[in-house]
Nucleic acid binder design. Structure first.
Length: 515
RNA sequence: GUCCCCGUCGUCUAGCCCGGCCUAGGACAUCGCCCUUUCACGGCGGUAACACGGGUUCAAAUCCCGUCGGGGACGCCA
């Protein structure tokens, strides 16, 4: 059965196959990333396939939203397909399975939705009348126009003695299907626990299971890397592959991403916090987001956490994937803070936020500056890239999200400072008189000094000494007058960028506020 | 209900396959100290975990059995 050479990377082909039924959520993004990493690490082929079989639920908006997310991540693919354009192939394969006697027509009317989902009697297996329906009668009824679904004939005890597919054998005395998962190891399931699933619906459309396997076989996918929620479906898939005359690919199932409440991440229950574009809009760097996602369910095993895309690509392997579900430790925005439009920082997993800050700090100044500029321009269209380039180094260590630039660099950007509490001007262990004295001195000294770091440093320290103040007591009033608050970048660099004119004007203003 | 998967600090994880180096390592978060003109960065240190119970063994986080807990799949949805 293992005739395909899976070690040869030239034939390595993986795929990401989202269904366009909503936005791209973080679990899907992580599946995409792992597939991409595996393909690139092994110089294989990355395929994007839209699994849009369910016309009812698919929307154009969803397709756009998924592409938005993928585009932001910045990871590419080599080939792309739409399942809805391949129905002929799916039907052809379904009927070839029927022709081999491995599927049969089921004329039972379709079920009315969810009603008999978790029946007390246990798993429904098959309807004997339909499964055993003579071929002639089946053909006759079909020819008469009676609707039917096409069902897979899962091997039962009646298959014993005949030629069995190679994935089917006996385990503990029971006829079972087996396959080897790259993450979860050997998997076995008794055919008595697998129902005769549908291949074609009564409207002739392929089901997900059929379409997915038919495409994977046709596109010669070598490795299927997907969420663990498909682990039990895989037994059916193995059966389809073999019935269609193909060797099943190598499977690798990923542990699920779960919410803090322990349940599988879902768009429905958890909302925008699980949408990729939410991270984009909050000012995450794509590489930081990718880094974060990779650490959920995978480990490089060498204690590294902050990793670039290149490092991730080099380090990635299926062996590093673990089996336990991982929680994305986000908070519901409503619980985090009364909503004010923007998504508060504490909404996101703290590690994601930290990684983002790390990636921001690792970016070269000019690169960071370029990414910051469009955000700044939303509110301050007149800021030049030259100015931005001077501001960036002063705030790089102080922002966790790209958007934070607006709050961190506000005093560089506005003409007029927002009104602040004059009490802020008063230094440690000082009073309003001291503040006033310091500012008047600063006004005097700064008027005649050259605005570069060293000159500023000398001038202000000397001024402090002259007044009998500690350096900090001198700096604080100046800082607050030019920044409008206590927490700000280092003073001299700040003054340098602000320039003499603005600095003096703001000190003047502060003196006015004090008196 | 049936079947499948999982269970190491609050969270992500290393170690588990091939028992001893584990008085269980790292990271985030948290607490404290240092650096310092504020904030941040950085440095140092602390708190904190092998779900439980049996067994095998000289020795078990690592192997076996059971219990409990969590998740997932069971559709003519994907």
């Amino acid at each position: 059965m293992n005739q395909i050479d899976r070690t040869s990377s030239a034939n390595l082909r993986v795929r990401f196959a989202p269904s366009p039924t909503g936005f791209l959520h973080v679990g899907s993004a992580r599946t995409f990333i792992f597939n991409w990493l595996y393909a690139r690490h092994n110089h294989g082929t990355m395929i994007l396939r839209l699994d849009d079989t369910d016309v009812e639920r698919n929307t154009e908006a969803s397709v756009d939203s998924i592409f938005d997310g993928l585009q932001w991540l910045g990871l590419d693919w080599d080939e792309s397909y739409k399942q809805s354009e391949r129905h002929e192939l799916h039907r052809k394969i379904a009927w070839s399975i029927f022709d081999k006697g491995l599927a049969y027509r089921d004329f039972t009317p379709a079920h009315t939705g969810e009603s008999e989902k978790s029946g007390v009697q246990g798993t429904w297996l098959f309807n004997a009348d339909m499964r055993e329906l003579p071929r002639e009668e089946s053909n006759r009824r079909a020819a008469a126009g009676e609707p039917f679904a096409l069902r897979f004939r899962v091997p039962r005890e009646d298959a014993i003695g005949r030629q069995l597919p190679s994935a089917v054998g006996f385990a503990e005395g029971k006829l079972s299907v087996h396959f080897d998962d790259a993450v979860y190891g050997k998997q076995v399931k008794a055919t008595a626990d697998i129902e005769d699933f549908a291949l074609l619906r009564s409207d002739g459309m392929p089901t997900y299971h059929l379409a997915s396997c038919a495409d994977d076989a046709d596109l010669t996918i070598s490795h299927i890397i997907r969420g663990q929620d498909h682990l039990t479906n895989t037994f059916k898939h193995v059966l389809i592959f073999e019935a269609a005359g193909h060797t099943p690919p190598q499977f690798a199932h990923l542990p699920l991403l779960v919410a803090p409440d322990g349940t599988k991440l879902s768009k429905r229950r958890h909302g925008p916090v699980v949408s990729v574009t939410t991270y984009r809009d909050a000012g995450f760097l794509p590489d930081a987001f990718i880094n974060f996602l990779c650490l959920l369910g995978w480990s490089p095993k060498d204690d590294r956490t902050k990793m670039s895309l290149g490092e991730l690509t080099d380090a990635f392997s299926l062996e590093g994937i673990n089996r336990a579900n991982a929680v994305v430790n986000f908070k519901e925005p409503a619980a985090a803070r009364p909503l004010s439009g923007a998504i508060p920082e504490e909404t996101f997993d703290a590690k994601a936020v930290w990684l983002n800050a790390e990636h921001i700090r690792a970016l070269p100044i000019d690169d960071l500056s370029e990414r910051l500029l469009p955000i700044v321009h939303e509110q301050y269209p007149n800021v030049t890239s030259k100015t931005m380039l001077r501001i960036t180094p002063l705030i790089r260590e102080r922002i966790k999200f790209l958007r934070d630039v607006l709050a961190a660099a506000d005093f560089f950007l506005v003409e007029q400072l927002r009104p602040y509490d004059p009490a802020e001007l008063i230094p440690q262990k000082g009073d309003a008189v001291m503040a006033l004295k310091a500012l008047q001195k600063a006004r005097e000294v700064l008027a005649s000094v050259e605005f570069n770091h060293d000159a500023l440093d000398h001038a202000l320290r000397a001024a402090a000494q002259e007044l009998g103040l500690k350096a900090g007591q001198m700096f604080q009033p100046v800082r607050v007058s030019v920044c409008g608050r206590k927490n700000a970048p280092p003073l001299f660099e700040t003054l340098e960028v602000l320039g003499k004119e603005t600095t003096l004007r703001r000190i003047e203003d502060a003196i006015r506020r004090l008196s």
